[in-house]
């Protein structure tokens, strides 16, 4: 459809490009130029305000010498791994169960998905209260008679990161469920019928045929959840505020506090660049394959 171009007036031919240009300009500036800018700052000695000297890799060296950053990176691995595993597993299980021609499917689907409509701040606030050792779950179980039960992870530096996992999984597994369910509904029923005629049992059909056919959905879920995990910020802030101490620090919260609270803008920029590279390593191959397949199809 590069039609009207040469035969209507020049201006009319350029109109689409002229109209799309401002958006493109905004995105080029606010995404790509800003990334570059952050990159530049990470090579300066900026503290409270940006200064444009050249400090080489000094900020990256400082970043990796900061114990807090090590905690943040370690936490990111623990959090991402568990968050991905649990959200994907629970999401897949719920999608398969929901796909068994059950009653009230619409209602259940809505229940599993509503947390996704909430702000992470709301989620964090709610779970902070639920997991409060003084008045929350622990107290309820104690009062039911199991007096030795303790659930004080949120105040335990060793366990606090797992409370972030719990709240994160609660919020995001419904999302995984929705994508898996869409994937299940997209599978050609005749394939299943064919397997059925060959005498395959239901669990076998799921294991050998249906779940392998969900690979595109699985890829989408993993990529999108990884992205959510890496940029998780509000949830941690609302739930534990990075604490106790720095026990639940994540790269995202580290970047924020270094930049805006501790006047280490250079270190903050360096950590942001580390995050960006991690996301890019996951997202760019994914987008590339998605777009290429779309063009072929």
């Amino acid at each position: 459809m590069n039609a009207a171009k040469s035969f209507s007036s020049r201006l009319a031919g350029w109109l689409p490009r002229i109209v799309v240009a401002p958006s493109l300009l905004i995105v080029i500036v606010t995404v790509y130029l800003f990334i570059l800018w952050t990159g530049v700052i990470s090579f300066t000695s900026s503290k409270f305000v940006p200064v444009y000297d050249f400090a080489g890799f000094e900020q990256f060296v400082r970043l990796w010498a900061t114990p807090r950053w090590h905690t943040a990176v370690a936490n990111l691995f623990i959090f991402s791994a568990l968050f991905l595993l649990l959200s994907t597993g629970i999401g897949l299980l719920m999608a398969i169960l929901l796909d068994q021609n059950i009653r009230a499917e619409g209602f259940l689907r809505a229940v599993y998905l509503y947390p996704m409509a909430l702000s992470f701040i709301v989620t964090g606030t709610a779970w902070k209260w639920i997991m409060n050792p003084g008045l929350g779950i622990q107290k309820v179980v104690n009062e039911l008679g199991w007096t030795s039960f303790t659930f004080d992870w949120i105040t335990d530096p060793k366990m606090a990161i797992y409370t972030v996992v719990i709240a994160g999984v609660w919020q995001s597994s419904g999302f995984a469920m929705a994508i898996f369910l869409a994937g299940l509904r997209g599978i050609d029923n005749s394939v299943i019928k064919a397997a059925q005629i060959e005498g395959a049992s239901l669990p076998l059909i799921y294991r050998q045929i249906i779940i392998p056919m969900l690979r595109p959905a699985m890829l989408s879920v993993i990529v999108l959840l990884s992205y959510i995990a890496i940029k998780s910020f509000d949830l941690v802030l609302a739930l534990t505020n990075g604490g106790p101490g720095s026990a639940t620090e994540l790269p995202s919260t580290f970047m924020f506090s270094a930049t805006f609270r501790r006047n280490q803008m250079g270190v903050g920029a360096a950590s942001a660049i580390m995050m960006l590279m991690t996301v890019a390593a996951i997202i760019i191959p994914y987008l590339y394959s998605e777009l290429r397949e779309r063009n072929n199809g």
Partner: peptide, 14 residues
């Protein structure tokens, strides 16, 4: 499209 997946920490300072 890549803008959809931008970790916003990378653009906060600018």
């Amino acid at each position: 499209l890549f803008g959809c997946f931008l970790p916003y920490q990378a653009i906060l300072i600018p």
